[in-house]
Design a protein around this nucleic acid. Structure first.
Lengths: 107, 107
DNA sequence: ATTAAAAGCAACCAAATAGTTGCATTAATT
DNA sequence: AATTAATGCAACTATTTGGTTGCTTTTAAT
């Protein structure tokens, strides 16, 4: 059970950084595999900076990498976000909290 | 628009830490205002450690604090999680990605 | 009035983070 | 064969982070 928890932590950590969210988003909307250099051209930070972010995203399972020749093609994989979706989904019962808590107490 | 972005970043940062998620969760399920010392008793780290986490959660708007006498009563406020819900909700279209992308291309 | 409880404040620490630069390697291109 | 492009690797830096301890202040209880 420990590794599942680790994975969740990795996902939360990966999406915590705004630049990483941007990289991920760019890959999702591109909906085509992109090599690292091409990705990094869209950002102000250095290629190596982008590479580090990509590594973090890959460790979280949010990016898959397919090496072809000298290039490494990255594709977004949103599946791990389901864990975040489920996590946050638990709390949506409490968004209109006053109402719902009242219901709970009555029910 | 900048402060809205900052707020989103604060929320993502706040939920990135597992201990903070636990503190938040404990407050949600307690569904009653709890002073800091009482919260910190449920965790292995020091009271000041918990205080710092609570500050981060408060800055993200995930905790409200009501000072009464020498105590500071904390309550969870899940509302800001709606931003996370919306963010992640965008990507749920891509969870069964092969299928959906095919649809997009056809549609 | 004394004591005890709740919390804040400040300094400190080790580790992680986000970023950089320089250089080496590998694979295409010409 | 020589060059160029894509990447990796390593070292370094500044800042942030998650945590600690010690002490002070404020408020409640005895």
């Amino acid at each position: 059970m420990k590794s599942a928890n680790q994975r969740i932590n990795q996902v939360f950590k990966a999406i915590a950084d705004p630049t990483r969210r941007e990289i991920f988003h760019a890959l999702v909307v591109a909906s085509v595999a992109m090599p690292i250099t091409q990705i990094s051209e869209q950002f102000d930070i250095s290629r190596q900076g982008v590479t580090k972010h990509i590594k973090t995203l890959e460790e979280a399972g949010l990016i898959n990498i397919d090496t072809k020749g000298r290039e490494r093609f990255c594709t977004a994989d949103p599946k791990p976000l389901k864990m975040v979706f489920d996590w946050v989904g638990f709390y949506d019962k409490f968004w209109d909290d006053a109402l719902n808590r009242l219901d709970d107490h009555l029910g």
